[in-house]
Design a protein around this nucleic acid. Structure first.
Lengths: 207, 207
DNA sequence: CTGTTAAGCGTACATCATACGCTTACTATC
DNA sequence: GATAGTAAGCGTATGATGTACGCTTAACAG
Protein backbone atom coordinates (compact mmCIF):
# COMPACT_ATOMS: atom_id res chain seq x y z
CA UNK A 1 0.00 0.00 0.00
CA UNK A 2 2.77 2.35 -0.94
CA UNK A 3 4.72 3.75 -3.81
CA UNK A 4 7.03 1.07 -5.23
CA UNK A 5 10.78 1.48 -5.42
CA UNK A 6 12.12 2.54 -8.76
CA UNK A 7 15.73 1.57 -8.24
CA UNK A 8 17.58 -1.53 -7.11
CA UNK A 9 20.79 -1.92 -5.20
CA UNK A 10 22.18 -3.63 -8.24
CA UNK A 11 21.38 -0.75 -10.55
CA UNK A 12 22.91 1.68 -8.10
CA UNK A 13 26.11 -0.31 -7.81
CA UNK A 14 26.28 -0.60 -11.59
CA UNK A 15 25.80 3.12 -12.03
CA UNK A 16 28.43 3.92 -9.43
CA UNK A 17 30.87 1.54 -11.07
CA UNK A 18 30.13 3.13 -14.43
CA UNK A 19 30.99 6.54 -13.03
CA UNK A 20 34.29 5.20 -11.66
CA UNK A 21 35.16 3.49 -14.92
CA UNK A 22 34.30 6.48 -17.07
CA UNK A 23 35.35 9.49 -15.01
CA UNK A 24 37.67 8.04 -12.40
CA UNK A 25 37.37 7.45 -8.70
CA UNK A 26 37.79 11.14 -7.90
CA UNK A 27 34.59 11.85 -9.82
CA UNK A 28 32.60 9.42 -7.69
CA UNK A 29 30.03 11.37 -5.72
CA UNK A 30 26.46 10.95 -4.63
CA UNK A 31 25.50 13.61 -7.14
CA UNK A 32 27.31 11.91 -10.00
CA UNK A 33 25.75 8.53 -9.29
CA UNK A 34 22.30 10.06 -8.98
CA UNK A 35 22.75 11.85 -12.29
CA UNK A 36 23.89 8.60 -13.87
CA UNK A 37 20.62 7.04 -12.76
CA UNK A 38 18.49 10.03 -13.70
CA UNK A 39 17.27 10.65 -10.15
CA UNK A 40 17.82 13.36 -7.60
CA UNK A 41 20.77 13.11 -5.27
CA UNK A 42 18.77 12.54 -2.13
CA UNK A 43 16.83 9.71 -3.68
CA UNK A 44 19.87 7.51 -3.30
CA UNK A 45 19.57 7.75 0.46
CA UNK A 46 16.43 5.62 0.30
CA UNK A 47 18.75 2.79 -0.74
CA UNK A 48 22.11 3.40 0.92
CA UNK A 49 22.83 4.79 4.35
CA UNK A 50 25.80 6.88 3.24
CA UNK A 51 28.62 7.13 0.77
CA UNK A 52 30.48 4.37 2.55
CA UNK A 53 27.75 1.90 1.79
CA UNK A 54 27.80 2.96 -1.83
CA UNK A 55 31.52 2.23 -1.97
CA UNK A 56 31.02 -1.10 -0.30
CA UNK A 57 28.49 -2.03 -2.94
CA UNK A 58 30.93 -1.13 -5.68
CA UNK A 59 33.56 -3.38 -4.14
CA UNK A 60 31.05 -6.14 -3.74
CA UNK A 61 30.05 -5.87 -7.38
CA UNK A 62 33.63 -6.04 -8.61
CA UNK A 63 34.52 -8.98 -6.38
CA UNK A 64 31.20 -10.65 -6.99
CA UNK A 65 32.01 -10.78 -10.70
CA UNK A 66 35.03 -12.99 -10.13
CA UNK A 67 34.73 -16.24 -12.02
CA UNK A 68 35.31 -18.97 -9.45
CA UNK A 69 34.78 -21.93 -11.76
CA UNK A 70 38.23 -23.47 -11.71
CA UNK A 71 38.71 -27.20 -12.20
CA UNK A 72 38.67 -28.87 -8.81
CA UNK A 73 40.95 -31.61 -10.04
CA UNK A 74 44.06 -29.48 -10.38
CA UNK A 75 46.65 -29.49 -7.59
CA UNK A 76 45.74 -27.10 -4.84
CA UNK A 77 48.43 -24.53 -5.55
CA UNK A 78 47.44 -24.38 -9.17
CA UNK A 79 43.82 -23.86 -8.17
CA UNK A 80 44.77 -21.02 -5.86
CA UNK A 81 46.89 -19.43 -8.57
CA UNK A 82 44.03 -19.76 -11.03
CA UNK A 83 41.65 -18.13 -8.59
CA UNK A 84 44.07 -15.31 -7.96
CA UNK A 85 44.32 -14.75 -11.70
CA UNK A 86 40.55 -14.54 -11.90
CA UNK A 87 40.53 -11.93 -9.15
CA UNK A 88 43.22 -10.05 -10.99
CA UNK A 89 41.12 -10.15 -14.13
CA UNK A 90 38.04 -8.86 -12.35
CA UNK A 91 39.89 -6.03 -10.66
CA UNK A 92 41.79 -5.23 -13.82
CA UNK A 93 38.48 -4.58 -15.53
CA UNK A 94 37.85 -1.76 -13.05
CA UNK A 95 41.23 -0.39 -12.06
CA UNK A 96 39.83 2.81 -10.64
CA UNK A 97 38.20 0.88 -7.84
CA UNK A 98 41.47 -0.47 -6.45
CA UNK A 99 41.66 2.02 -3.57
CA UNK A 100 38.10 1.13 -2.65
CA UNK A 101 38.97 -2.55 -2.61
CA UNK A 102 41.72 -1.79 -0.17
CA UNK A 103 39.43 0.06 2.18
CA UNK A 104 36.24 -1.97 2.00
CA UNK A 105 37.18 -5.49 1.04
CA UNK A 106 36.63 -6.78 4.54
CA UNK A 107 32.90 -6.06 4.56
CA UNK A 108 32.30 -7.68 1.22
CA UNK A 109 30.35 -10.82 0.51
CA UNK A 110 32.17 -10.88 -2.80
CA UNK A 111 35.47 -11.36 -1.01
CA UNK A 112 33.94 -14.06 1.15
CA UNK A 113 33.01 -15.97 -2.00
CA UNK A 114 36.61 -15.78 -3.17
CA UNK A 115 37.95 -16.70 0.24
CA UNK A 116 35.70 -19.73 0.45
CA UNK A 117 36.92 -20.91 -2.96
CA UNK A 118 40.51 -20.42 -1.89
CA UNK A 119 39.86 -22.34 1.28
CA UNK A 120 38.47 -25.26 -0.66
CA UNK A 121 41.75 -25.50 -2.51
CA UNK A 122 43.77 -25.08 0.68
CA UNK A 123 41.68 -27.71 2.43
CA UNK A 124 42.43 -30.11 -0.38
CA UNK A 125 46.09 -29.23 0.03
CA UNK A 126 45.96 -30.41 3.62
CA UNK A 127 45.91 -27.03 5.29
CA UNK A 128 43.99 -26.99 8.55
CA UNK A 129 43.73 -25.08 11.80
CA UNK A 130 46.04 -22.17 12.42
CA UNK A 131 48.15 -23.08 9.40
CA UNK A 132 45.17 -22.58 7.16
CA UNK A 133 44.43 -19.23 8.77
CA UNK A 134 47.95 -18.04 8.08
CA UNK A 135 47.88 -19.35 4.53
CA UNK A 136 44.62 -17.65 3.64
CA UNK A 137 45.58 -14.35 5.19
CA UNK A 138 48.96 -14.42 3.48
CA UNK A 139 47.41 -15.10 0.10
CA UNK A 140 44.81 -12.39 0.53
CA UNK A 141 47.44 -9.94 1.73
CA UNK A 142 49.71 -10.67 -1.18
CA UNK A 143 46.98 -10.49 -3.78
CA UNK A 144 45.70 -7.22 -2.40
CA UNK A 145 49.13 -5.70 -2.15
CA UNK A 146 50.11 -6.85 -5.61
CA UNK A 147 46.93 -5.58 -7.22
CA UNK A 148 47.42 -2.25 -5.59
CA UNK A 149 51.09 -2.06 -6.52
CA UNK A 150 50.22 -2.86 -10.09
CA UNK A 151 47.70 -0.09 -10.25
CA UNK A 152 49.35 2.66 -8.24
CA UNK A 153 52.95 2.01 -9.22
CA UNK A 154 53.16 -0.34 -12.20
CA UNK A 155 56.57 -1.78 -13.07
CA UNK A 156 56.10 -0.43 -16.58
CA UNK A 157 55.33 3.05 -15.29
CA UNK A 158 56.92 6.42 -14.81
CA UNK A 159 58.06 5.60 -11.29
CA UNK A 160 60.29 2.82 -12.56
CA UNK A 161 61.80 5.11 -15.16
CA UNK A 162 62.49 7.72 -12.53
CA UNK A 163 64.23 5.17 -10.32
CA UNK A 164 66.28 3.84 -13.20
CA UNK A 165 67.31 7.37 -14.10
CA UNK A 166 69.00 8.18 -10.79
CA UNK A 167 71.79 5.90 -11.94
CA UNK A 168 74.31 6.98 -9.40
CA UNK A 169 73.28 8.18 -5.99
CA UNK A 170 72.08 7.04 -2.64
CA UNK A 171 70.01 4.13 -3.94
CA UNK A 172 72.35 2.22 -6.24
CA UNK A 173 70.72 -1.18 -5.93
CA UNK A 174 67.26 0.27 -6.33
CA UNK A 175 68.31 2.05 -9.49
CA UNK A 176 69.94 -1.02 -10.91
CA UNK A 177 66.95 -3.16 -10.06
CA UNK A 178 64.62 -0.67 -11.73
CA UNK A 179 66.66 -1.02 -14.88
CA UNK A 180 65.80 -4.71 -14.98
CA UNK A 181 62.13 -4.05 -14.38
CA UNK A 182 61.25 -3.64 -18.01
CA UNK A 183 62.03 -7.28 -18.59
CA UNK A 184 59.24 -8.29 -16.20
CA UNK A 185 55.65 -8.21 -17.38
CA UNK A 186 52.85 -7.42 -14.98
CA UNK A 187 51.65 -10.98 -15.23
CA UNK A 188 55.06 -12.50 -14.60
CA UNK A 189 55.43 -10.25 -11.58
CA UNK A 190 52.09 -11.26 -10.13
CA UNK A 191 52.54 -14.94 -10.87
CA UNK A 192 56.12 -15.01 -9.71
CA UNK A 193 55.36 -13.62 -6.30
CA UNK A 194 52.24 -15.67 -5.82
CA UNK A 195 53.88 -18.94 -6.78
CA UNK A 196 56.77 -18.23 -4.47
CA UNK A 197 54.33 -17.64 -1.64
CA UNK A 198 52.48 -20.85 -2.39
CA UNK A 199 55.72 -22.85 -2.59
CA UNK A 200 56.71 -21.44 0.76
CA UNK A 201 53.34 -22.17 2.31
CA UNK A 202 53.64 -25.77 1.16
CA UNK A 203 56.88 -26.29 3.09
CA UNK A 204 55.93 -25.77 6.71
CA UNK A 205 58.94 -24.88 8.86
CA UNK A 206 58.61 -26.48 12.24
CA UNK A 207 57.24 -29.83 11.17
CA UNK B 1 66.17 40.16 1.07
CA UNK B 2 62.78 38.83 2.03
CA UNK B 3 60.69 37.71 4.91
CA UNK B 4 62.05 34.39 6.22
CA UNK B 5 59.97 31.24 6.37
CA UNK B 6 58.50 30.46 9.72
CA UNK B 7 57.69 26.79 9.11
CA UNK B 8 59.57 23.78 7.85
CA UNK B 9 58.42 20.81 5.86
CA UNK B 10 59.39 18.70 8.79
CA UNK B 11 57.26 20.65 11.24
CA UNK B 12 54.32 20.47 8.85
CA UNK B 13 54.63 16.73 8.43
CA UNK B 14 54.94 16.33 12.18
CA UNK B 15 51.83 18.43 12.79
CA UNK B 16 49.85 16.53 10.16
CA UNK B 17 50.90 13.24 11.68
CA UNK B 18 49.94 14.50 15.10
CA UNK B 19 46.47 15.33 13.84
CA UNK B 20 46.11 11.85 12.37
CA UNK B 21 47.33 10.18 15.53
CA UNK B 22 45.15 12.23 17.83
CA UNK B 23 41.92 12.74 15.87
CA UNK B 24 42.07 10.11 13.16
CA UNK B 25 42.62 10.24 9.47
CA UNK B 26 39.12 11.55 8.82
CA UNK B 27 40.00 14.67 10.79
CA UNK B 28 43.01 15.40 8.62
CA UNK B 29 42.41 18.64 6.75
CA UNK B 30 44.40 21.66 5.70
CA UNK B 31 42.53 23.62 8.33
CA UNK B 32 43.30 21.15 11.09
CA UNK B 33 46.99 21.03 10.27
CA UNK B 34 47.19 24.82 10.08
CA UNK B 35 45.47 25.12 13.43
CA UNK B 36 47.91 22.58 14.86
CA UNK B 37 50.74 24.82 13.76
CA UNK B 38 49.06 28.04 14.83
CA UNK B 39 48.98 29.54 11.36
CA UNK B 40 46.24 30.36 8.88
CA UNK B 41 45.06 27.70 6.50
CA UNK B 42 46.41 29.31 3.37
CA UNK B 43 49.85 29.69 4.84
CA UNK B 44 50.38 26.00 4.33
CA UNK B 45 50.21 26.49 0.61
CA UNK B 46 53.54 28.28 0.72
CA UNK B 47 55.03 24.92 1.63
CA UNK B 48 52.91 22.26 -0.07
CA UNK B 49 51.26 22.37 -3.45
CA UNK B 50 48.09 20.67 -2.32
CA UNK B 51 46.63 18.20 0.10
CA UNK B 52 48.16 15.33 -1.81
CA UNK B 53 51.64 16.60 -1.10
CA UNK B 54 50.77 16.92 2.56
CA UNK B 55 49.71 13.30 2.61
CA UNK B 56 52.86 12.27 0.82
CA UNK B 57 54.91 14.00 3.46
CA UNK B 58 53.08 12.15 6.19
CA UNK B 59 53.85 8.85 4.51
CA UNK B 60 57.43 9.84 4.06
CA UNK B 61 57.74 10.72 7.70
CA UNK B 62 56.31 7.41 8.86
CA UNK B 63 58.48 5.38 6.50
CA UNK B 64 61.49 7.55 7.11
CA UNK B 65 61.33 6.64 10.78
CA UNK B 66 61.94 2.96 10.06
CA UNK B 67 65.02 1.70 11.82
CA UNK B 68 67.11 0.05 9.11
CA UNK B 69 70.04 -0.91 11.31
CA UNK B 70 69.87 -4.67 11.13
CA UNK B 71 72.98 -6.78 11.46
CA UNK B 72 74.42 -7.36 8.02
CA UNK B 73 75.85 -10.66 9.07
CA UNK B 74 72.56 -12.51 9.41
CA UNK B 75 71.36 -14.71 6.56
CA UNK B 76 69.56 -12.69 3.90
CA UNK B 77 66.07 -13.98 4.65
CA UNK B 78 66.47 -13.16 8.30
CA UNK B 79 67.62 -9.66 7.42
CA UNK B 80 64.59 -9.15 5.21
CA UNK B 81 62.30 -10.43 7.93
CA UNK B 82 63.93 -8.12 10.45
CA UNK B 83 63.50 -5.16 8.14
CA UNK B 84 59.86 -6.03 7.56
CA UNK B 85 59.35 -6.17 11.31
CA UNK B 86 60.85 -2.70 11.61
CA UNK B 87 58.46 -1.41 8.99
CA UNK B 88 55.63 -3.04 10.84
CA UNK B 89 56.73 -1.33 14.02
CA UNK B 90 56.93 2.08 12.36
CA UNK B 91 53.51 1.76 10.77
CA UNK B 92 52.03 0.31 13.92
CA UNK B 93 53.02 3.50 15.73
CA UNK B 94 50.72 5.44 13.38
CA UNK B 95 47.92 3.10 12.41
CA UNK B 96 45.67 5.86 11.14
CA UNK B 97 48.03 6.52 8.29
CA UNK B 98 47.72 3.06 6.78
CA UNK B 99 45.33 4.12 4.02
CA UNK B 100 47.72 6.92 3.12
CA UNK B 101 50.60 4.48 2.92
CA UNK B 102 48.60 2.45 0.46
CA UNK B 103 47.94 5.42 -1.77
CA UNK B 104 51.20 7.32 -1.59
CA UNK B 105 53.94 4.88 -0.78
CA UNK B 106 55.26 4.88 -4.31
CA UNK B 107 56.32 8.53 -4.28
CA UNK B 108 58.11 8.25 -0.98
CA UNK B 109 61.81 8.55 -0.36
CA UNK B 110 61.14 6.75 2.89
CA UNK B 111 60.03 3.68 1.01
CA UNK B 112 63.07 3.92 -1.22
CA UNK B 113 65.28 3.76 1.86
CA UNK B 114 63.52 0.59 2.95
CA UNK B 115 63.67 -0.87 -0.53
CA UNK B 116 67.37 -0.22 -0.81
CA UNK B 117 67.96 -1.96 2.50
CA UNK B 118 65.87 -4.92 1.37
CA UNK B 119 67.80 -5.08 -1.86
CA UNK B 120 71.08 -5.22 -0.01
CA UNK B 121 69.87 -8.33 1.73
CA UNK B 122 68.49 -9.81 -1.48
CA UNK B 123 71.74 -9.07 -3.26
CA UNK B 124 73.61 -10.91 -0.58
CA UNK B 125 71.18 -13.77 -1.07
CA UNK B 126 72.18 -14.03 -4.70
CA UNK B 127 69.15 -12.39 -6.21
CA UNK B 128 69.88 -10.53 -9.42
CA UNK B 129 68.20 -9.29 -12.57
CA UNK B 130 64.55 -10.04 -13.12
CA UNK B 131 64.49 -12.45 -10.21
CA UNK B 132 65.46 -9.66 -7.87
CA UNK B 133 62.76 -7.44 -9.33
CA UNK B 134 60.14 -10.06 -8.68
CA UNK B 135 61.43 -10.73 -5.18
CA UNK B 136 61.40 -7.09 -4.13
CA UNK B 137 57.99 -6.40 -5.57
CA UNK B 138 56.57 -9.52 -3.96
CA UNK B 139 57.96 -8.59 -0.57
CA UNK B 140 56.71 -5.03 -0.82
CA UNK B 141 53.30 -6.22 -1.98
CA UNK B 142 53.00 -8.71 0.83
CA UNK B 143 54.13 -6.30 3.51
CA UNK B 144 51.76 -3.62 2.31
CA UNK B 145 48.85 -5.99 2.03
CA UNK B 146 49.54 -7.54 5.40
CA UNK B 147 49.85 -4.19 7.16
CA UNK B 148 46.62 -3.05 5.67
CA UNK B 149 44.85 -6.28 6.50
CA UNK B 150 46.06 -6.04 10.05
CA UNK B 151 44.61 -2.60 10.53
CA UNK B 152 41.45 -2.66 8.49
CA UNK B 153 40.43 -6.21 9.32
CA UNK B 154 42.50 -7.60 12.18
CA UNK B 155 42.27 -11.31 12.91
CA UNK B 156 41.37 -10.43 16.48
CA UNK B 157 38.58 -8.13 15.37
CA UNK B 158 34.85 -8.00 14.97
CA UNK B 159 34.98 -9.26 11.39
CA UNK B 160 36.48 -12.54 12.48
CA UNK B 161 33.83 -12.96 15.15
CA UNK B 162 31.11 -12.30 12.60
CA UNK B 163 32.53 -14.91 10.25
CA UNK B 164 32.89 -17.44 13.02
CA UNK B 165 29.30 -16.83 14.04
CA UNK B 166 27.71 -17.82 10.73
CA UNK B 167 28.50 -21.38 11.72
CA UNK B 168 26.33 -23.04 9.14
CA UNK B 169 25.69 -21.42 5.81
CA UNK B 170 27.14 -20.75 2.44
CA UNK B 171 30.71 -20.26 3.67
CA UNK B 172 31.41 -23.30 5.83
CA UNK B 173 35.18 -23.36 5.43
CA UNK B 174 35.46 -19.65 5.98
CA UNK B 175 33.46 -19.91 9.18
CA UNK B 176 35.51 -22.82 10.43
CA UNK B 177 38.74 -21.07 9.57
CA UNK B 178 37.62 -17.96 11.40
CA UNK B 179 37.09 -20.05 14.48
CA UNK B 180 40.78 -20.96 14.45
CA UNK B 181 41.84 -17.37 13.98
CA UNK B 182 41.93 -16.55 17.65
CA UNK B 183 44.86 -18.90 18.05
CA UNK B 184 46.95 -16.77 15.71
CA UNK B 185 48.54 -13.57 16.97
CA UNK B 186 49.03 -10.62 14.67
CA UNK B 187 52.75 -11.16 14.80
CA UNK B 188 52.54 -14.86 14.02
CA UNK B 189 50.31 -14.06 11.09
CA UNK B 190 52.68 -11.46 9.69
CA UNK B 191 55.77 -13.55 10.26
CA UNK B 192 54.20 -16.74 9.00
CA UNK B 193 53.21 -15.28 5.66
CA UNK B 194 56.44 -13.39 5.20
CA UNK B 195 58.66 -16.36 5.97
CA UNK B 196 56.64 -18.53 3.62
CA UNK B 197 57.15 -15.98 0.88
CA UNK B 198 60.87 -15.79 1.55
CA UNK B 199 61.19 -19.59 1.58
CA UNK B 200 59.42 -19.70 -1.74
CA UNK B 201 61.55 -16.97 -3.22
CA UNK B 202 64.64 -18.89 -2.22
CA UNK B 203 63.60 -21.92 -4.23
CA UNK B 204 63.49 -20.69 -7.80
CA UNK B 205 61.29 -22.87 -10.00
CA UNK B 206 62.81 -23.13 -13.46
CA UNK B 207 66.43 -23.46 -12.52
C1' DC C 1 -12.76 7.82 -5.94
C1' DT C 2 -10.03 8.49 -1.90
C1' DG C 3 -6.85 8.02 1.84
C1' DT C 4 -2.42 6.07 3.37
C1' DT C 5 2.16 5.24 2.87
C1' DA C 6 6.69 5.37 1.49
C1' DA C 7 9.42 7.02 -2.53
C1' DG C 8 11.27 11.01 -4.54
C1' DC C 9 13.38 15.23 -4.09
C1' DG C 10 14.27 20.62 -3.15
C1' DT C 11 16.52 23.26 0.02
C1' DA C 12 19.80 24.24 3.36
C1' DC C 13 24.02 23.78 5.84
C1' DA C 14 28.54 22.62 7.44
C1' DT C 15 32.90 21.42 5.72
C1' DC C 16 36.28 20.88 2.41
C1' DA C 17 40.26 22.30 -0.93
C1' DT C 18 41.98 26.06 -2.92
C1' DA C 19 42.39 30.55 -6.30
C1' DC C 20 43.34 35.29 -5.83
C1' DG C 21 45.26 39.31 -4.20
C1' DC C 22 46.09 42.32 -0.26
C1' DT C 23 48.98 43.07 4.01
C1' DT C 24 52.91 42.62 6.57
C1' DA C 25 57.41 41.59 8.39
C1' DC C 26 61.87 41.07 7.49
C1' DT C 27 66.44 42.17 5.33
C1' DA C 28 69.63 44.37 2.27
C1' DT C 29 71.01 48.63 0.96
C1' DC C 30 71.93 53.35 1.52
C1' DG D 1 68.55 54.66 11.29
C1' DA D 2 65.56 55.12 7.26
C1' DT D 3 63.65 52.94 3.31
C1' DA D 4 62.46 49.99 -0.41
C1' DG D 5 61.84 45.38 -2.23
C1' DT D 6 60.45 40.89 -1.66
C1' DA D 7 58.34 36.84 -0.35
C1' DA D 8 55.64 35.05 3.71
C1' DG D 9 51.26 35.22 5.79
C1' DC D 10 46.56 35.31 5.44
C1' DG D 11 41.33 37.08 4.58
C1' DT D 12 37.91 36.37 1.51
C1' DA D 13 35.44 34.01 -1.85
C1' DT D 14 34.08 30.07 -4.73
C1' DG D 15 32.48 25.76 -5.99
C1' DA D 16 32.15 21.00 -4.61
C1' DT D 17 30.95 17.68 -1.29
C1' DG D 18 27.99 14.66 2.07
C1' DT D 19 23.81 14.64 4.13
C1' DA D 20 19.75 16.30 7.56
C1' DC D 21 15.07 17.77 7.21
C1' DG D 22 10.63 17.99 5.65
C1' DC D 23 7.54 18.75 1.74
C1' DT D 24 5.49 16.62 -2.58
C1' DT D 25 3.74 12.99 -5.09
C1' DA D 26 2.72 8.55 -7.06
C1' DA D 27 0.73 4.23 -6.53
C1' DC D 28 -2.15 0.90 -4.56
C1' DA D 29 -5.82 -0.78 -1.03
C1' DG D 30 -10.35 0.01 0.18
Amino acid sequence: MARPKSLTHDAIAAAALAVCDRDGLAALSMRAVAAELGVATMSLYRYVADRGELERRIVDRVLGAVDLSVPAVAPWHERVARLADRIRDAVGAHPETVPLLMTHRHASRGLMRCAEAMLEALDEGGFAGARRVVALRAIVSYVNGALQAQHVAPLAGAGTDALAALSTGEFPLLAETARHARAVTAEAEFRGGLEALLRGLATAPGR
